[in-house]
Write a protein that binds this DNA or RNA. Structure first.
Lengths: 221, 221
DNA sequence: ACTCAGCGGAGACGACTTCTCCGCTTCTGC
DNA sequence: GCAGAAGCGGAGAAGTCGTCTCCGCTGAGT
């Protein structure tokens, strides 16, 4: 449903270029984030900017084409994790897999963690993430394998925190975030709650959503 | 030594305006970060931009005037924490205090966690932070109150991660970061032998420094 | 061969910042 | 009071950086 299939089959060379653009965009966005310019992408594909703009009306259109299914894959990941035999393993597996993908792709990181109006599909897909993380968390809490004072929104925040670590590791130490995640995971076990309860209350879903949406002047366009 | 004291005492109204600028800058930078424009600051002070530029040659000059001692205060905090009777309490106290200050002041956050050439004093002050955190960490490790596979650079990374949480809380939930810090602190206790060691190796000092310096296109100017 | 989809990429545009300039206002010392 | 230095305001010059358009040319497809 992205675009009606009716139009016209595209000339052979044009289709080839389309693929090149997509491939270049994947690479460029992955390393430089969504802040990369379309000029960058075009040049990386060995094409002129005009060509990119003929194929994709907008920078948003390109981003959407690239990231909607990537994000949907994260949703599937969460869904699968909900079905894991061991709730804790499910949560850990999801956090690791999701973190790994976002850490390896600055563009995905931006698409998931930052806002942007106009990217309808991406936004919708992202919205499906929250409830699943919530379920994942609730399951663990019920099973007593997660400290009871952690909410789903807290886990979302933690994911953000891990990505901050990933940003520090950058491409120089692409696995550096795992250390931060490791510390966090140990801190999430119930027995580990040595001290006091976590202070304050977790963010409500609305607060979290607003925080994520309101975020950053950055991004693209 | 900021500027030689010799010049001339400044007319009374000028001095008053200077104070207004400083006060406005504190406020504006705290809420909008270093990305705020000097026009913002000037307007917030009820003055024209020209006035600000007469007093401070540069945006950097203003930032420097504001944040050098703030960062130095963080250094002092770390120094004091090193002298705490209980090493763990020292570390926790430092992390909490430093996080609190940075969470409450987006400008400070930017000044400490991001780069910027030209801000000599700020950069120097920041450089003194690393070794102290290292000492703080080593003390805890030696005392066996910190998991042995955590290095000073890891703690620095964790601080970053906490600030990511702070950014989410924003001004709506200014204390939200404490929950993330809480989880992290519990995860830092010497392994009540849950899992495995933290994966990979900690960043070296140079790697961390480079990561911090190389960071972000953002900032001011 | 002919023609039209497709291409390239200079540059128009717009959004933003930083910082300057200069006529006018306000102090201050005498 | 008054002269004249110090200070002020804020329009706008100048620069930067992205997005996206335009149009003459190229080469695929029949």
């Amino acid at each position: 449903m992205t675009t009606s299939e009716v139009p016209r089959p595209l000339r052979r060379d044009a289709e080839r270029n389309r693929q090149r653009i997509l491939a270049a965009a994947v690479e460029v966005f992955a390393t430089r984030g969504l802040a990369a310019t379309l000029d960058d992408v075009a040049h990386h594909a060995g094409l002129g900017v005009g060509t990119v703009y003929r194929r994709f009306s907008d920078k948003d259109a390109l981003v959407e084409a690239l990231f909607e299914d990537r994000i949907r894959a994260l949703v599937d990941l969460a869904e699968t994790a909900c079905a894991a035999a061991d709730p804790w393993e499910g949560l850990v597996g999801y956090l690791e897999a999701a973190s790994a993908r976002m850490a390896a792709d600055r563009g995905l990181r931006d698409a998931v963690l930052s806002p942007r109006h106009g990217q309808v599909g991406v936004t919708l897909a992202r919205a499906e993430l929250g409830p699943r993380v919530e379920r994942l968390t609730a399951r663990c809490r019920d099973a007593g394998v997660l400290r009871p004072d952690v909410a789903g929104t807290d886990v979302a925040t933690l994911l953000h925190a891990v990505q901050a670590a990933a940003e520090i590791g950058g491409t120089a130490s692409p696995e550096h975030w795992r250390r931060t995640l490791g510390v966090l995971l140990d801190g999430l076990r119930p027995a580990r709650a040595t001290h006091h309860r976590l202070p304050g209350a977790p963010l409500s879903d609305e607060e979290l959503h607003e925080a994520l949406t309101l975020r950053r002047r950055a991004g693209s366009r």
